[in-house]
């Protein structure tokens, strides 16, 4: 007799499964989860903390907050950050002071671990929510974060 009950139970479980997929089929119109990516660029919003790439914000006077302490360079596990620095004479105090020439960021090597941003004592570098990072040429992934002619904001010390 188990022969027939097997058949009956088997068909019952199969129909139960079909009812699940069938329910989704009927609600296909509003249930779809697909994001049609290039079309929804305008509405696509990343979360505030999204780790897209490292950037160095500059204010309207073209001033950044990086003192060139190199803590981010040390914190980085992959050698993603390279800082070329120099010593310049501070006009106010007349003392010699470290200042950055170039803050180079190799996006191609970055694993987005966030240790550099954790390490930065002056919040000079932050995460940007930019998610379209692909380029045709690998060399374009190496970026200089400080803008040309920029300087440290006054009063920023490590």
């Amino acid at each position: 007799m188990s022969y027939f009950s097997d058949i009956y139970n088997g068909i019952k479980t199969l129909l139960t499964g079909m009812s699940v997929t069938g329910k989704y089929f009927i609600h296909a119109r509003k249930g779809s989860l697909t994001q049609q990516y290039p079309d929804n660029r305008e509405t696509l919003k990343m979360f505030d903390r999204f780790r897209g790439e490292v950037v160095m914000p500059h204010d309207e006077n073209n001033e950044h907050r990086c003192t060139g302490c190199q803590k981010c360079e040390i914190a980085c596990p992959n050698g993603t950050i390279e800082i070329i620095w120099d010593r310049g004479i501070d006009e106010e105090t007349g003392k010699k002071k470290k200042k950055i020439d170039k803050h180079i960021y190799h996006l191609g090597m970055c694993t987005m671990c966030g240790l550099c941003i954790e390490a930065c004592p002056t919040d000079a570098i932050v995460w940007a929510q930019n998610y379209e990072n692909s380029v045709y040429d690998r060399t374009k992934l190496s970026k200089v974060l400080n803008q040309p002619g920029s300087k440290v904001k006054a009063g920023i010390e490590d």
Binding site: T21, Y24, F25, A28, G31, S32, L33, T34, Q36
Partner: peptide, 10 residues
């Protein structure tokens, strides 16, 4: 198309 509608796709 049918597969997509079963699978929450377009």
């Amino acid at each position: 198309k049918v597969a997509a509608w079963f699978q929450l796709r377009l």
